[in-house]
Amino acid sequence: MKHKTFFWFFLPTASAMLLFIALPIFSIVIQSLFTPHDAVIIVTENCDPFGCKQETTIDQDATRDLRKSEPLGKFVGLEIYKDRGHLAVNEIKEIWVESNNFAEFKNNIGNLPFYRAMAFTLTFTFTVTPLMLVFGFIIALAVNSLHQNLKGLTIFFSLLPMIVSPLIGSLVLFWMIDSRGIIGEALQYVFEDPDLSLKASTGLTWVMLIVYGVWHAAPFSFVVFYAGLQTLPMDTIESAKIDGASRLQQVWYVVIPHLMPLITFVALMQLMDNFRVFEPIVGFSAEAHAQSLSWFIFNDLGGETRLLSSAATSSVLTIIGVSILLFPVLIRTWRDFNEKSAK
C-alpha cells in the first residue's frame, strides 16, 4: 500500500487516538506540575481614632478572574508528587528516622494513603493473576473431558462472570455476602459467630476482593486454555502414555509446555488489567479497608471539589506503574515481530 493511501485510511483512527489518548496523557503530565491559584487576598487598613487595624479579605472577583485566565493554576514543579497525599517524601524521611526497626517502618508507611493504595493494588495484581491462571486451567481440563453436548452449556455459564460489568458483578456478590444475605448468613453459621461481617475487617475485605477478582477473571483464562487444548498434539500424549507417564505427568510434561505461550499471554494481559482494579471497590463499598490506585484517582475527581492536580499526579504515577508491567509485553511483541519478518 502506498504511503498516501495508508495515510488516508489510517487518519480517522489515528486522530481519535491522538486527541483522546495521547493528548490527555501529555495533559495530565503538565497538570500534575501545576496547582490551583490561591485566593487573592487584599489587605486594607482601617484607621479610626484608636489606631489602625489591618483587615484581610478575599477578593472574590480577582480570584475568579485569575483562575479563569490561567485555568491550569500556578507552576509548582514536582511539589505535588512529594506531598503527603502522593509520594510523601518528607514523611518517609521522618518515619525512617523515627522507626526503630523495619517492621515499624513498614507499618508507618502503611498509614500514608498513596502507599496503602499501592500495597493493595500490588497485592491484588499478584495474587489474582496466578490464582486465575491455575483455576482457569483446571476448569479447562475438566470441561475438555466432558461429553460434547455438555461443553457448550458449561461454556455459556462460565462466560457470565466475565461478561457482566465489574461493578454489577461485584454488587451481585456484595448483596450475597451481606450479613443478611445468603452467603453472609452461611458463613455466620459455619463459624458460629452471629456478628461475623466480611465488611468489617481489612483482611477479610481484601480476601473478598481477591475472590471476586478470580471469579471475574478465571473465565478468560479458561476460554483461552480450552482453545489451546483443542490443538494438543495427540501423538505426543500417546507416546507419553506408552512410556508410562501418569495422567499428572502427562499434564505436567506435555500439556503445560504446549500451552506455555498462551499462559504467558494471559498472565501478561492480566497483570495489566488487574493493576487497574477499581470497580469492585466501589461495588463492595470497600474503600474504608482497601483502596487501589485507580480508586484513588476516582476519589480525587469525584465529589464537590474536583482535585484535578492531585488526580493528574496519581494518574502519572499509575501510568508509570503500568509501563513497568507493560515492558515484558512489548519485548515479547518485538521478538514475535522479528521472528515473523525473519521467516
Binding site: 500500500m1 504511503h3 495508508f6 489510517f10 489515528a14 487516538m17 483522546f20 489518548i21 495521547a22 493528548l23 490527555p24 496523557i25 501529555f26 495533559s27 495530565i28 497538570q31 485555568p71 491550569l72 495489566m272 493493576f275 487497574r276 477499581f278 485507580s294 484517582i297 476516582f298 480525587d300 475527581l301 474536583r306 484535578l308 488526580a311 493528574a312 494518574s315 502519572v316 499509575t318 501510568i319 503500568v322 509501563s323 508491567l325 507493560l326 509485553v329 512489548l330 511483541t333 518485538w334 515481530f337
Partner: peptide, 30 residues
C-alpha cells in the same frame, strides 16, 4: 502495508491499550 511503521503503530496502540481509562479522565475534564 508492509512498511516498518505499521509495526510501530501497532506497538503504540498496545501501549495505549494498557493505559487505565481513569488515568485519562483528569486530562479530559479541564
Amino acid at each position: 502495508s508492509s512498511y516498518k511503521y505499521t509495526f510501530w503503530l501497532l506497538i503504540t496502540a498496545l501501549i495505549f491499550r494498557a493505559m487505565p481509562p481513569i488515568t485519562l479522565v483528569a486530562g479530559y475534564l479541564l
